[in-house]
């Protein structure tokens, strides 16, 4: 880095420390752009891939009301993907890249998406649990990101968070019906909770203390976290988010009489800090690098629909030709 760039970076950091925002056309350090692109691509693709587990339940929803609400939710998630991909594209444009590169990377296994969307959704309770507890986790992350320094991302997030509020109520409503339902329905929800708990505990990523740092070369999750905090792209650590999540949802889950499959889970009454069984971070890494149970099937499905939709994109963007 030449001295001039160093000075500019210093000025940029001071600008951030003073609480100012950054716009797409502003000068920004390469590292800031790279962290933003990485985060927003991950978010955008997670929204898009997140439609796939839920859409599996659209044809099997138990009532017409549930089917319509689930379709509306799936449509919202696709819309969030559209919003976020535009934000990412404006950042990627100086590198000569656009959404095609994001999709190509996804199909080639180079683009990550959230661990929860690599997993199977065997029952209606799993679909409800995604709406309640996965979206509940997502809104905690997104609420935190609203305080970020990159203005175009925060503008997109405001819109997204507004719609997520509907998603959580939708998920809660499904789970509440099961909780107040027959013994069979309660057992179905309990099974889903037992299945999903490890994935929920890893949703926010590894803690900052380095205990989960992989021995594998190239494992740099915590350094991204530190860089994002420094750039005020994020304002809380993974562990702070997980603690907030546990404080919000553990009492609710228990109040419905369900058992969280972690006998060590407890909150210190004075410090309010939750302790829990350390999740299997190696398994989490395997899942997000496309070695999850449904990773290949979902990426293939997305690839197929992208290929089958090519003619639509061609028609909508085709040069007018003499026929």
């Amino acid at each position: 880095m030449n001295p001039n760039a160093e000075d500019r970076t210093q000025q940029f950091l001071e600008h951030l420390d003073d609480g100012h925002m950054v716009e797409a056309d502003d000068w920004m350090p390469d590292a800031y752009r790279a962290e933003l692109v990485r985060l927003i691509r991950l978010h955008a693709v997670s929204e898009i891939m997140g439609t796939l587990p839920e859409k599996e339940w659209v044809p099997r929803a138990p009532t017409l009301y549930r089917k319509l609400a689930l379709m509306a939710k799936v449509q919202d998630e696709a819309g969030h993907g559209q919003l976020l991909i535009r934000v990412a594209e404006d950042l990627m444009a100086p590198r000569g890249q656009n959404r095609e590169h994001i999709m190509e990377d996804l199909f080639a296994g180079r683009q990550k998406f959230h661990n929860v969307f690599h997993l199977p959704v065997p029952t209606w309770a799993d679909a409800g649990l995604i709406g309640w507890l996965v979206d509940g986790a997502a809104i905690i992350t997104q609420g935190m990101l609203l305080g970020g320094s990159y203005a175009p991302y925060t503008r997109a997030l405001r819109r997204i968070v507004e719609e997520e509020a509907f998603h959580i109520q939708h998920g809660e409503s499904i789970c509440m019906a099961l909780a107040e339902g027959t013994a069979g329905q309660r057992a179905m929800f309990q099974d889903a909770l037992t299945r999903w708990w490890p994935a929920l505990m890893t949703f926010f990523g590894p803690p900052e203390d380095g205990t989960a740092r992989s021995a594998a070369p190239g494992a740099a999750h915590t350094s991204h976290q530190a860089a994002n905090l420094r750039f005020r792209i994020r304002t809380k650590s993974n562990e702070e988010l997980r603690q907030r999540y546990l404080s919000k949802y553990v009492p609710r889950i228990r109040s419905l009489g369900f058992v969280i499959p972690d006998p060590t889970l407890k909150q210190d009454p004075t410090t309010k800090v939750w302790t829990y069984q350390p999740p299997d971070w190696e398994q989490w890494r395997a899942i997000i690098t496309n070695h999850g149970p449904r990773s290949a099937a979902r990426v293939n499905l997305r690839h197929t629909s992208y290929a089958e939709g090519q003619w639509v994109r061609d028609v909508m963007s085709a040069t007018r030709k003499a026929v």
Partner: peptide
């Protein structure tokens, strides 16, 4: 202003 999008027309 609401958002930006990509379109052919």
């Amino acid at each position: 202003w609401q958002a930006s999008l990509l379109a052919g027309s």
